[in-house]
Simulated scan of single mutants.
Amino acid sequence: MGDEANILLIEDNPGDVRLVEEAFRDGQINNRLHTVTDGRAALDFLHREDGYEDAPRPDVVLLDLNLPKVDGEDVLHEIKHHPELGHVPVIVLTGVDEQLIESRDLDHDADEDAVLEKPIDHGEFIDVVREFDEFRISIVRSHN
């Protein structure tokens, strides 16, 4: 149980949520997947407010940029500028071309972040998440 990553999925499309859940199951990735469906709920989860007071700190965030209530770019900005979350890797899930994403100022310059274009390729998605999971586990082990 202690080696499970807490992964926060911020995605409003139920079909995409299902695809992510299937990819994790098929890839046999050890994790606890927490899902919120809009930007406001994401911020509440991250700040442990409004019903999310016991929420764990995520080890990895999977973030759709096109969200209701609070835009995904604002959520990304909040994560990267939060003193306790700035180090958390973010995998941006988007239907927008990756070059367009990189041309915007999304605070997306951290080495540990990635952009995956929708529709998500099952194998590529599993590989990227495993990479982050191994990175997180290696950090945990190096501190022991």
Rank of each mutant, 00 (worst) to 15 (best):
E84M: 09
L33W: 03
L33F: 06
L85Q: 08
R57Y: 11
L76S: 03
V115N: 00
A110S: 13
L76H: 01
V60S: 01
T94E: 08
I101N: 02
I137F: 09
P83W: 10
S138G: 06
Q99E: 15
L67F: 04
E98Q: 13
H108C: 13
H108D: 08
S138K: 10
I7Q: 00
R48D: 08
D64T: 06
R130W: 10
E102Q: 15
I120W: 03
L63S: 01
G51K: 08
P83I: 10
I29N: 01
H108A: 13
P56E: 04
T37R: 06
E4D: 14
P14Q: 12
I137L: 15
V129T: 03
I101W: 05
V17P: 00
D74E: 15
R25K: 15
V115L: 05
D59F: 02
T94I: 11
E11C: 05
N144I: 13
L67E: 00
N13R: 11
A55H: 02
V60R: 01
V96Q: 06
V96D: 05
L33R: 03
E53T: 08
V90K: 00
E131I: 10
H108R: 07
R57I: 12
D111H: 13
A5W: 05
V36I: 08
G2W: 11
E22T: 14
P58D: 02
R18P: 09
P58N: 04
G51N: 07
P56T: 09
Q99F: 13
V20I: 14
L116T: 05
Q28R: 15
N6K: 08
V17W: 01
D71A: 09
E49K: 14
L8M: 05
H87I: 11
D44H: 08
I101R: 04
P14A: 12
F135D: 07
V17Q: 06
R32W: 09
L19I: 13
E131M: 14
E131L: 14
V90T: 06
L76Q: 03
P89V: 05
D97W: 12
L8N: 00
F24I: 05
E134Q: 14
N66Y: 10
G72S: 06
P14C: 13
H47P: 05
D105R: 13
Q99C: 11
V36M: 02
D74C: 12
R48P: 06
L67C: 04
E78G: 06
D54G: 10
A41N: 07
L33G: 01
D111L: 14
P58K: 01
V115C: 05
S103F: 12
I101E: 03
L19C: 10
L33E: 02
D44T: 08
L33M: 07
D109G: 12
R48K: 15
